[in-house]
């Protein structure tokens, strides 16, 4: 713990004043003549003429969310485009914020499993904890969209239904065949 009395230079305010102004002036001139770097990652901010500006001009430039980022939900489709979800209510049970609403139904034409007739997530209630992803036994809900829930102008618009949630690349696990009682009509690629 450095705790000493002040040296004469510090006592007269001068020395630290000059040092402090030096720090600011250095930043000022560096940034003034700096080469504005749009990617604010410090690791990429090395090299000639690179400045230290850490601001991101938000709508024009955005920081890409990291791969593991818990963003907006999506319902993972199967290869045939139907949701992987089997309406087991695990995610709704695990959700601390109770933002998931599910109504189950059965496929008429395909004897596979249950499916969600309605699957709605209230993104305003959601606290983005990711427990639903962890709770899903079918890998049917994911938060890997790389975006956040969009801003809405009224509360009902923040409730996302099955159609708007069902997007993104399809996923097929090797164990999935165990759950199909008859083979899929569209064979896996």
């Amino acid at each position: 713990m450095p705790r000493t009395d002040l040296s004469p230079g510090e006592r007269l305010y001068l020395r630290e004043a000059v040092r402090g102004m030096g720090v600011l002036a250095r930043h000022f001139w560096k940034n003034l003549f700096g080469f504005r770097d749009p990617a604010p990652e410090v690791m990429e901010r090395k090299g000639r003429g690179v400045n230290l500006v850490s601001t991101i001009n938000y709508p024009e430039e955005r920081k890409e969310y990291p791969p593991g980022y818990r963003g907006m939900h999506r319902l993972v489709p199967r290869l045939d485009g139907k949701p992987r979800c089997v309406a087991c209510y695990m995610c709704a049970t695990a959700c601390p914020a109770q933002c998931i609403y599910i109504e189950a139904g059965e496929y008429e034409e395909e004897a596979i499993e249950k499916y969600p007739v309605r699957f709605e997530i209230d993104e305003l209630r959601c606290i983005v904890c990711g427990f639903c992803v962890e709770a899903c036994p079918k890998d049917a809900i994911r938060m890997d969209t790389g975006t956040h829930a969009p801003a809405v102008l009224s509360r009902p618009l923040a409730v996302f239904d099955k159609e708007s949630l069902l997007r993104g690349p399809a996923v097929e696990h090797s164990t999935d065949v165990l759950t199909y009682r008859v083979p899929l009509k569209t064979p896996p690629r």
């Binding site: 080469f35 504005r36 770097d37 749009p38 990617a39 024009e60 430039e61 955005r62 920081k63 890409e64 969310y65 963003g71 999506r74 890997d144 969209t145 790389g146 975006t147 969009p150 997007r167 993104g168 690349p169």
Partner: peptide, 17 residues
């Protein structure tokens, strides 16, 4: 997934000057 984000919000990082 990055394509999903792109569909919603456009490119994340504009080209470097």
């Amino acid at each position: 997934t990055a394509r999903l984000a792109f569909e919603d919000f456009g490119p994340a990082i504009p080209p470097r000057p």
